[in-house]
């Protein structure tokens, strides 16, 4: 292959998903959100769901998700995405309805909405990015912040006696009868990205098949909030986050 042939379509082996807008993302370099957005866009495109998808965006870092993925979106109030998605899905049962939420949105302010939507087995997919911190508001403690982890509101580290325990919300959701698929993934290596993509696809397929609620937790990095370089953040995540939030399927009843 000559050097200029690399531009030829038949030699193209990778491109930006057509549903990912050509907009500069506001995410910090090293943040996991960009990769997860790309995966969501790719999966919708590959499943041919462009003209059948409704995304529900959260409050938090992913608040502008609607600027990046070129489908119909509803921006929900903080924590209310599962309720908003319930309304949208119940009234439009043929649509692929999913929420995209962070740890504060899903596991703190929106715990009730999350648990009850999942317990009702709403046929929605929940993409849950857990980076153990509030990124958007400047690095405060999240429900998933680890013990000892320093944040703007736990400057000396999270203490059990003061702040309670980090919440393994996906384990809780896996216990509910309404969920069909709960999995925990990351996107920090090419292999992990492939697995995460397969998980998102499975979740979306479950929603369309009416199997119940699917939850894909992505343990992600927030190098700005963690005050680490992207590289250090990946390492810190592997050493600290993954032991507490182990990867893999917590529940898989997808084949109903």
């Amino acid at each position: 292959m000559k050097a200029e042939d690399i531009k030829l379509d038949e030699n193209k082996i990778y491109c930006r998903p057509t549903l990912l807008n050509d907009t500069t993302m506001h995410y910090c370099p090293g943040c996991s959100h960009g990769v997860v957005h790309k995966l969501v866009a790719e999966v919708i495109e590959e499943m041919g769901q462009k003209d059948n998808a409704i995304g529900v965006a959260p409050v938090g870092c992913a608040v502008f998700a609607y600027n990046y993925i070129d489908i119909d979106w509803i921006e929900a109030a903080h924590g209310r995405a599962p309720a908003v998605a319930t309304g949208a899905k119940r009234l439009n049962p043929e649509r692929l309805v999913f929420t995209y939420q962070g740890d504060g949105d899903l596991a703190a302010i929106g715990t009730a909405e999350t648990i009850h939507a999942a317990n009702r087995g709403e046929n929605i997919a929940i993409i849950f990015v857990n980076n153990a911190i509030y990124g958007m508001t400047g690095g405060q403690m999240a429900p998933t912040t680890l013990i000892g982890q320093k944040t703007a509101t736990t400057p000396y580290g999270r203490r059990v006696d003061l702040n309670g325990h980090p919440l393994k919300i996906s384990n809780l959701l896996a216990e509910l009868e309404g969920t069909c698929y709960v999995t925990r993934q990351t996107v920090h290596t090419p292999a992990a990205v492939r697995k995460a993509k397969a998980a998102i696809r499975k979740a979306f397929e479950n929603s369309l098949a009416g199997n119940g609620t699917s939850v894909v937790e992505i343990v992600g990095t927030c190098n700005s909030g963690w005050k680490l370089t992207p590289d250090q953040a990946n390492k810190w995540m592997e050493e600290n986050m993954i032991p507490f939030y182990p990867l893999g399927d917590l529940k898989n009843n997808s084949q109903k």
Binding site: A83, G87, L91
Partner: peptide
């Protein structure tokens, strides 16, 4: 809280 947000989701469509 959930009711009104379900309304919000439904009305959005």
């Amino acid at each position: 809280v959930a009711s009104i947000n379900m309304v919000y989701g439904g009305a959005s469509t």
